[in-house]
Amino acid sequence: MEQNGRIDHSIISLEHVSKRFESAGRVKEVVNDVSLEVKENEFVVLFGPGQCGKTTMINLIAGLEPASGGTVTVDGKKVEGPGADRGVVYQTTALFPFCTVMGNVEFGPKSRGIDKKTRRERAQYFINLVGLEGFEKSYPNQLSGGMRQRVGIARAYCNDPKVMLMDEPFGHLDAQTRYMMEEELEKIWQKEKRTVVFVTNNIEEAIYLADRIILLTNCPTSIKEEYIVDLPRPRSYVDPEFLKLRKTILDNTEETL
């Protein structure tokens, strides 16, 4: 592996990764021989129909589930379990309900024993970045869905991970909030560049955010096609180029059952 080749160095790599689940003696193939390289600071969107193994792929990279075959490498190290070098933003937000916004955002740094002043400052920076200034002392059940997801993003960022894994973070939001959050995420990402793997089943969201879209097949998931999106940012949902790409991808997408 090439060392410190800053820009073209691939930070996440999946080599012939597959995943099978077993229950009651039946084997279900979910991910089938996926190979993928993600470059540093690249925004990659995994796009695919409803119940394909997108979340499973995120969990494989996160190390929350072991791969049945193949290897996942992040920043040169083989993934063998969960770790702080990968930040996850969950669809269900998975905020700690018993912690305030501040408590949630500083959870990671606190776990790693960073002193209070430093971690507070850092957490405050990210709380401000996601636009939640003034809500530091609120509990998650006092926040709206969009605000909770902002906390989730700030929490992942605050731990300073090498890569960010986002599992349909806006899946539960209403359409209006969703557009707003997409714009917001793009702004945050421009300001705090990270490698992002983002899962969605919403095509506009995919094209709006991605540097590269990986189109997945139905279960068992494999890579069907890749699209480089090189439209200038911030993008417009009604740009003809945008719409053309949208049609191309949708035509190639399999119907969900």
């Binding site: 996160a62 929350l64 379990g81 969960p82 702080a84 990968r86 700690f96 912690c99 959870f107 776990s111």
Partner: peptide, 25 residues
């Protein structure tokens, strides 16, 4: 279990997961 997974992803030790996630939950 998502909360425990989440804490693990944030680099929390098993002891801290017990004290800061399981207990308050």
């Amino acid at each position: 279990p998502t909360l425990i997974g989440c804490a693990k992803m944030l680099g929390t030790s098993d002891r801290d997961i017990f004290l800061r996630v399981v207990l308050p939950s």
